[in-house]
Design a protein around this nucleic acid. Sequence first.
DNA 1: GACGATGGTGACAACGTTGTCAAGCACTCG
DNA 2: CGAGTGCTTGACAACGTTGTCACCATCGTC
Lengths: 368, 368
Amino acid sequence: MNDVAAAAGVALKTVSRVVNNEPGVNPATAERVQAAIDRLGYRRNDSARTLRRGRTASIGLVIEDVADPFYSGLSRAVEDVALRNDHFVFTGSSGEDPARERDLVLAFCARQVDGLIIVPAGTDHGYLAPEFDAGLKAVFADRPPGAGCRADTVLSDNAGGSRTGVAHLIAHGHRRIGFLADSPAIFTAVERLRGYREALAAAGLPYDESLVAMGPPDQERVRAVVERLLALPDPPTALFTGNGRTTVATLRVLDAISARCSAYHCSACRCSNDRCSNDHGSVRHGAERHGGTGRHGQGRLAGLALVGFDDFELADLLGITIVAQDPSRLGLTAAEMLFRRLSGHAGPGLRLELPTRLIERGSGETVP
Amino acid sequence: MNDVAAAAGVALKTVSRVVNNEPGVNPATAERVQAAIDRLGYRRNDSARTLRRGRTASIGLVIEDVADPFYSGLSRAVEDVALRNDHFVFTGSSGEDPARERDLVLAFCARQVDGLIIVPAGTDHGYLAPEFDAGLKAVFADRPPGAGCRADTVLSDNAGGSRTGVAHLIAHGHRRIGFLADSPAIFTAVERLRGYREALAAAGLPYDESLVAMGPPDQERVRAVVERLLALPDPPTALFTGNGRTTVATLRVLDAISARCSAYHCSACRCSNDRCSNDHGSVRHGAERHGGTGRHGQGRLAGLALVGFDDFELADLLGITIVAQDPSRLGLTAAEMLFRRLSGHAGPGLRLELPTRLIERGSGETVP
DNA sequence: GACGATGGTGACAACGTTGTCAAGCACTCG
DNA sequence: CGAGTGCTTGACAACGTTGTCACCATCGTC
């Protein structure tokens, strides 16, 4: 900027005015300055600007994993809102590690982000107190902050969505419904379990702990869980899967089981064959309709009904009934709440719950 | 920092030394300072630090869309490498708009990012020249920079992968192969078209322009394209789709066509029925094997063979043969190249090409 | 006992911007 | 002609760090 000022024969401050489109500069001078700027390829140093003004025009976003479609949808929405507000976004993935969440958050604070959107991995946010005192604004998304933290929060209606999904299976005659979800350390998983229990209770069905399995959605764990469930003396006739990754992993397992067993007592055409070489205990045979209009998934679910929490790509094609939450709406809402705070809005911390939506595609509408 | 210094009864500089773990501080003093830091909840202001040191310890990442699984995988890899190198990542989505790409890049530069990883939307990167002069390091990923820009570049072997995929279809007896890809403004699409043509040429097959359709992968456009192809007097018996989104959109279209037509001349069991009420011209009927071990997709492709560029979630389950590139390897490689430059590595701009891999899953192995 | 080496500490300038305030100028009005 | 007004411009300090350099003890050595 110094060089530009010298080149244009004006003072530093005048260049600053031109760069910032401040009023009160003679058009002729402005043009001269602009010419010097272009000639020298000058670009404002936003670090210095930030230091001087105290605002960085950037926000931090801490999520679990950008590579997860749920969070990448959320990210995109946050980014869009931020850009509309002339802010940039630092993104960091915590990988469900509370320590990493904390490190990321504090690092973003040291970078003087104006605000934060956090999908918390941990449950203690005491470390944020000094930051809040220093004027930091934060919004929690998808999961609430730990006790004692009164920040704005945007959640999905996890319990309600889960209740609806499970009630849907019950309405189709299912009495034994397996429940697979993420680890009980995760808020959403616990809420969805609550919804599951509420739906059972509302229908007067017992809660059977042997039908419930919670843990990380990795393929091998899910495989073991599904096989355990199907080997029960009184196995489930339907599954409710508590997040997108678990649903997908479950689909793979059920598909493999279906493929191992080529015997079908087909309910549509009444044909049957006994080429089944699979020692699969009491697994019911699939109800694939030969040449019918059923969707892909239905013939490949080892005879089980399935409803999942979270929509995912190709769920439509596979005919998987799901309870949809809207990740981009979650991100959008969180970002808008944050920018409202940043523009001076005071008032107590809000807690919003976004509705979910049951989308029927076939896999949840089969009878036991 | 001033307050901390006052509270600990030391000079500013000593606090600075403690904060930065610089040697030469009396342990007792350091402890006193640390206590003051903790008591006051002090956190270093990285804006000032940046201003003083000239390095921001952050990099910028410009991609097409974080919400696209391809780019979110790439992002995650970049983020991981950055974190390992104690850097943070600004991410911005260009949405294939060259102007937005430019704005993002320049905004990141104004923020003094140490380096950039760019998936370019545009083909003119002259605007970067002053930044390069000022010492900016940049790596281009997935697509090369515009002419005249000698920056490091990491690409997938687009033409080669496409050639392999198409040759695979040819090897299975296909002579009329439709080619669907992204807009010809996009480097990868053009390269993949080149691979398609090379595979045809190598097999002595003619290049028929009416079998080629390029444009954005939105569902309605793809639907129209597929329907046009199938209505040709001599329709294709196979399709090669040039990216993940196009593949998925194509699957939806073919599924809808298959569902509309419930007539199957089943090659596996020789049964046939004529309940087909669909006016689908010369569309071949699906080869679904009733109760066989085939994968989901094969019965739902309207009788067409299909190979797609890019792997995607559930492609395994659907039995879709694809040419896989590795987005996270792309991101990892780009980030490592960038950090090599940042740590002083000089030398001419490199251009790397990562290999692709054909994964056979059924949809690409059916005969015409 | 004088000297240099060593370890610990602090004063000060500088990084590149912007907010504050004041000054210069041309013009108008009484 | 002088005061008042509005427009344009510039000098200067400050933002919170860190690099440079200098200072002062303390210690060991000749």
